[in-house]
Amino acid sequence: MFWQILLGIWMTAVILASFLYMPATQGLGQTGRIIVYHVPAAWLAVLAYLISMLNAVGYLRRGELRLDRQARINAELGTVFCLVATVTGAIWSRAAWGWYWNWDPRQTSIAVLLLIYTAYFVLRSAVSDQARRARLSAVYSVLAFLTVPFLVFVVPRVYASLHPDLINLEQGSFDMDRKMLVVFLASLAGFTGLYAWMYKLVARLENLLDKLEQQKRGEAESER
């Protein structure tokens, strides 16, 4: 309970700081503040997809259904964060470039990523046998994750994009105002904590539902 309260205070502070402490951005003005939400969401999508893939590999090696569930929950959370990144990105695009959607390489690649992971859930819902579903979706998860580095890191840098790069590849530096950097990193940490919490909640809920199911089954059998 303690760290959840801490996280609540932390995120409140980040939100307040993003509006009050952080300065407006050169060229982007007030709209620059959205970076505090947009980039961490995108980062967490990548992290959750990575953990989903690692769990899928674990399932393929050890065959424990627990790992399949962890892979699925992480894919779900990754998709939630991916959607947040897409929506905040579209809003930002409207503010900075004038249009919500332009099929910029960044926008196209994130749309493709969302489709790839939508297909993962479609695949899961199409197979009813538990072990078979786990195996198929684990293989798919590994393949799906292979596209992530390309779609997120390579494509938008290879093709001309309007999307700015935080990391200056030529100079190998990270260009950001000091105050902005503080809020940005605090948000990154907060979002990561939020993700861990969301994961724990979903996992616990599903375990409880499992137990309930088992109990019901046990009662039904003892009645017989």
């Binding site: 060229g27 003005g29 970076i35 332009n102 902005m180």
Partner: peptide
């Protein structure tokens, strides 16, 4: 029939002098 404008953006504080 559509025009997009990308301004140079730097993650630096806006000049307080009101150059904006």
């Amino acid at each position: 029939n559509k025009i997009l404008v990308k301004c140079p953006s730097k993650y630096e504080a806006e000049h307080p002098s009101g150059v904006k």
